[in-house]
Amino acid sequence: MLKEIKEWLIAIAVAVVLILIIRQFLFVSFTVDGLSMDPTFEDGDKVVVNKFIDNFTDYETGDVIVFNSEKGPAYVKRVIGTPGDTVSMEDKQVYVNGEPLNEDYVTHTEDSYMDNFTLEELGVEEETIPEGTLLVLGDNRPVSRDSRDFGLVDQSEVIGEVQLRFWPLNEISINFD
């Protein structure tokens, strides 16, 4: 009986250590707060964020990331501009390096705040997005607090890339482009 209890305690300890390692270095769950990524994510959706991918690849336009914010809890947003890109918005159309960006995931409405912008209007002193920063926007542009509001995101603040929505169960998905 004592041997069996010892085996169970060891198994539980190993499981706890594995969970801690996975959460610290590989994956973490995150709950979407608000409507800024609607229709891609709704308020209360639960997602898995890949923290490990940051070590092997650069973020690309279209990636959905979670990052820490000085203005409160972490945000989930879509990467629109990466280092070296020029980005602007004219008449609700985003242009990256002079080319219109196809954004089937965006919520379009008549009244969206700050529809037009340039990098200069966002406070970027260079002609392109500087190294180590990203320009992010929410998919639900009329209500999203994003780079139009708080500027570029420092890549050191990025927690990771959203890889999986696991809640609600009837909307489990892995592709957010």
Rank of each mutant, 00 (worst) to 15 (best):
I21Y: 01
I65L: 04
G44I: 07
T57L: 11
D38K: 09
D43C: 03
Y59R: 06
L35T: 05
R23Q: 12
G34A: 06
S69Q: 06
P39W: 08
F52G: 07
I53Q: 15
D33Q: 11
V47I: 14
V48T: 03
V47Q: 12
V47W: 05
F41P: 04
F67M: 02
V49L: 02
D58E: 15
L20E: 00
S69V: 01
V64Q: 04
L35K: 13
N68S: 12
Q24V: 06
T40K: 04
T31F: 03
N55T: 05
F25T: 04
V49Y: 00
E70Q: 12
V47T: 12
G44A: 09
V66M: 00
Y75E: 05
G44E: 15
L26E: 04
I53L: 15
K46E: 09
F56E: 11
F25E: 04
V47E: 02
S29E: 13
T57N: 13
S29L: 04
L35Y: 14
F41K: 08
F52T: 05
L35W: 13
T61G: 10
F67N: 09
F67I: 11
I21N: 04
Y75Q: 10
L26Y: 13
F41M: 08
F56I: 05
Y75A: 12
V66N: 08
D54L: 11
F56H: 08
D33C: 08
G72E: 05
K46Y: 01
D45K: 13
F52M: 11
F56D: 12
F52S: 05
T57R: 14
Y75K: 10
Q24K: 13
V64G: 10
I53K: 14
D43K: 06
G72H: 11
Q24S: 12
K71Y: 15
F25A: 10
L35N: 14
N50C: 03
N55A: 00
I53Y: 10
N55I: 10
F67C: 08
I53G: 12
I65F: 01
D45Y: 12
N55F: 15
N68V: 03
T61Y: 12
K46W: 01
D43G: 08
D63H: 10
I22L: 04
V47C: 13
F25L: 06
L20N: 05
M37Q: 07
G34E: 01
K46S: 01
M37E: 04
E42H: 12
D43E: 08
E70T: 14
E60C: 12
G44Y: 13
E42V: 01
E70Y: 00
D33R: 04
L26W: 14
P39E: 07
M37W: 02
K71T: 10
V28D: 04
Y59K: 03
D38I: 09
Q24R: 09
